[in-house]
Write a protein that binds this DNA or RNA. Structure first.
Lengths: 238, 238
DNA sequence: CGCTCAGTTGATCAGTATCAAAGGGCGTGG
DNA sequence: CCACGCCCTTTGATACTGATCAACTGAGCG
């Protein structure tokens, strides 16, 4: 099953027809190796991309080559659904690991918006959840120290992976390098290394890349000031 | 005319019927003084709010009372349109100045999604533009020094205000205190004060709150590494 | 006329960046 | 099967941006 269905059924019910429409929306599957571009800034995609398996990110490059990752997308995430109404990409999307990607033509998305109002709201919802995460990242970056910020990212990724059955028992795979994490958190790799060690030494996590095990969820949550509300994990009619 | 129509007609054409539907979507007008709550985190609004006039912000509060503003909304912005699919607010919305707000019942939004697919995509687009701005803020916060970050905010607000005829000739009103700015940039008020002075002394802006005049747009853009693409100011069918 | 709040200034401190270099795991080629 | 090379991680020393603490100014307003 298309994991986007799994993800969204945590938040709302889908009819059999809607599920079928989503399944059929995927025109083909694309496999990319790690660190390849999915779309580049300035592109005008004619398809949107759904992560069937693997980890991708959205990123922006700055003048002097610095990179900022603005979102991490895992199984079930519709990475660039927003390119459908937005038309022109204002950032790039790249794989972090080997990925299986579902290609969804904009024409099929348009057809959905013409024929399936509720399913349209579900697609809309999925982009709004991305927006919620963006806001939460802004909060972390603006007002949390580096350690809290990293702790927050771990909490978020654990719950998101759990929601698509890719994490359980406080363990998950985090196949990012410390440099990727630095670009995500807006820090330097050196500093990321130091705070990872701090998390390890304080006994909150066991972290042997790519395996992360959270030993003390409550402490991690406190460090992060984590409140899962923004993940909108509750099921209700939309 | 409802300024949201003005804003969106910069990005796509609306039919007379669609414009009428948007006009009628506003059930009533609410006037709030400065620094009042529009919605609070945890609320389940039954209406969404459109800024007819004034400046509002979305914000999150942290444990020790710190505040992070995640978005600034001006005339024509649909501040909490996302509360319609999202249902529960994961952040608060407050006025920064006296505001006239249009109240749009979720029931009417739902009716739009059932009957007007193109208009639905336009509403969706408006929330996606918010997402683009969020991402750009993440980039600024993560990879730009404080001065560039402030410069970026000025560039963005100027163009956004210009798009709704509230700014021209590089002049606009920015009725935020330096404390508000600090909460949006993730800095302290003291440091904001210092970088504002730096901008003034380098002759890039004349800034006598609330009046801002940009003297050297090109230099401001260079300081900010500003690229307006993310504002999606281009007109095209969505 | 005094209060309050925004803005300003100065001194010092802390967190993170920068620069430099060494260690470790893993795949590839010899 | 070993050695080399590469990338990621780790460590140390130092620099700098922005935070903190404290106090003062000035304007608006009751």
């Amino acid at each position: 099953m298309n994991p986007f269905i799994l993800k969204m059924e945590r938040r709302d019910s889908l009819s059999a027809e809607e599920r079928a429409v989503l399944e059929e929306a995927v025109a083909r599957v694309r496999v990319l190796g790690p660190h390849e571009d999915v779309v580049r800034e300035g592109d005008r995609p004619t398809d949107s991309t759904l992560v069937l398996d693997g980890v991708t990110c959205r990123y922006n490059l700055l003048g002097d080559g610095k990179r900022q990752i603005t979102a991490i997308h895992v199984t079930g995430d519709f990475v660039d659904l927003h390119s459908f109404p937005l038309k022109v990409m204002d950032h790039g999307v790249a794989t972090l690991t080997t990925c299986r990607l579902g290609v969804v033509p904009h024409a099929r998305l348009k057809a959905i918006t013409e024929q399936f109002p509720h399913l349209t709201r579900v697609l809309w919802l999925s982009t709004l959840m991305d927006g919620s995460m963006h806001r939460q990242w802004i909060v972390s970056m603006g007002r949390m120290p580096a350690l809290g910020q990293l702790a927050h990212l771990l909490c978020e990724l654990y719950l998101r992976l759990e929601a698509v059955n890719e994490a359980s028992e406080l363990r998950f795979k985090l196949p990012l390098t410390q440099t990727d994490l630095a670009d995500t958190l807006g820090l330097t790799p050196v500093h990321v290394n130091r705070i990872v060690q701090e998390l390890r030494q304080s006994g909150v996590v066991v972290w042997r890349t790519p395996d992360v095990q959270i030993l003390d969820w409550d402490r991690l949550v406190r460090l992060a000031e984590f409140d899962p509300r923004y993940l909108h994990l509750h099921h209700e009619p939309r």
